[in-house]
């Protein structure tokens, strides 16, 4: 007989592993990926593959040769960073820029802080913001979606957010929301299809990988805030405007997949809601009054920085804190 094992309790485990969480998120991203392949074709595929490969390779090299530790690429976190970074890029972005973004995301966004679990900012977001500031021209020229697109440099066009920013009421009212839900809209290729992203959200909730608190509070805040801001133009218009705010740009992608990143979001339910509400407010503020048409990345990025503070003040409700609360 083998030697008996002795260990402290508990002796069973839920079976959930870090890798399962990461791959679960990847599975949830699949619908959005297929939609982007449909509309942006080869470009989307190339950018995704490049980002994933370079993220994994950079993580491996840094862990093995710089930190001299065991590489942990098998847990899928580097793949996830790569996919999320890619989804936040235009499909016609030159691949060398994608590689630079990956290097920044993994090297500075993650490894410089000590690797998985220690980073303050979402690495994919750090990569995207770095690229947005360094290559504003390339990062804000989005190709028009086109079914079964095989061309690498198609026509480019304005996104819904550009139209919203311009604030021309007639133009805004004419936007076809249905097309936006499906994904037939300009933008970074992972963020265009609301339905695909929401399907991913449903999967994540079903698998209990994330809770509803962060996405719902972000979406609700953005809706309510943009509704009240434009209320003076009439209720009907405000409703359309608020609705468009939710379905346009990276809001859904950010709310469901980026803001919910375990490492950089708060630990308690209350903290998560506060975090979501503040992200929503900052996003709308930047979108309406800031210099950039899109504020989601910056909002999440700022709130990533505030997360430790939220964790410090939003404690879980302890048992017995309010004794005899019949």
């Amino acid at each position: 007989m083998n030697k008996l094992v002795v260990s402290p309790s508990p002796h069973i485990h839920s079976g959930l592993t870090t890798a399962q969480c990461m791959y679960g998120v990847l599975i949830a991203l699949l619908p959005a990926f297929f939609v982007s392949l449909y509309y942006f074709g080869l470009g989307a595929l190339l950018v995704t593959v490049t980002a994933v490969l370079s993220c994994v390779v950079f993580e491996y090299l840094i862990q093995k040769y710089l930190l001299k530790g065991q590489p942990t690429i098998a847990n899928g976190s580097a793949i996830l960073t790569g996919v999320l970074l890619a989804f936040n890029l235009p499909s016609n972005l030159p691949l060398w820029i994608v590689v630079i973004g990956s290097l920044f995301a993994i090297g500075v966004g993650k490894m410089a802080f000590g690797g998985l679990g220690n980073n303050i900012f979402n690495p994919a977001l750090a990569g995207r913001i770095f690229l947005l500031i360094s290559f504003p021209q390339q990062m804000t020229t989005w190709p028009r979606p086109q079914a079964f697109n095989m061309a690498l440099d198609g026509e480019t066009g304005a996104t819904t957010l550009n139209i919203l920013k311009r604030g021309n009421i007639d133009e805004i009212i004419n936007i076809d929301v249905m097309e936006m839900l499906i994904g037939n809209a300009g933008g970074s290729f992972g963020e265009v299809s609301a339905i695909a992203l929401l399907a991913g959200f449903a999967y994540l909730l079903l698998k209990r990988i994330i809770t509803w608190h962060i996405p719902v509070s972000i979406i609700a805040t953005v809706f309510l805030f943009s509704f009240f801001v434009t209320l003076h133009e009439g209720i009907e218009y405000a409703l359309i405007f608020a609705e468009l705010q939710i379905f346009s740009g990276g809001l859904l992608l950010g709310a469901i997949f980026m803001a919910t990143d375990y490492v950089t979001s708060p630990m308690t339910r209350g903290g998560m809601i506060l975090y979501g509400v503040l992200i929503g407010i900052i996003t709308v503020v930047i979108r309406l009054w800031g210099a950039y048409p899109e504020g989601m990345s910056f909002a999440i990025f700022i709130m990533n920085g505030v997360t430790p503070l939220i964790n410090n003040y939003m404690r879980p409700k302890r048992y017995g804190e309010v004794a005899k609360n019949g």
Binding site: V5, H13, T211, V263, S265, M267, K317, Y319
Partner: peptide, 29 residues
């Protein structure tokens, strides 16, 4: 417990998923 259910997995870094916080019946962290 049979051999295959007796071993613990190698621990990996905390990813701050907060699953322990929501699981704790005493509301601790």
């Amino acid at each position: 417990l049979p051999e295959e259910q007796s071993h613990r997995h190698e621990p990996s870094p905390c990813i701050r998923c907060a699953k322990c916080v929501s699981a704790c019946p005493m509301g601790l962290e």
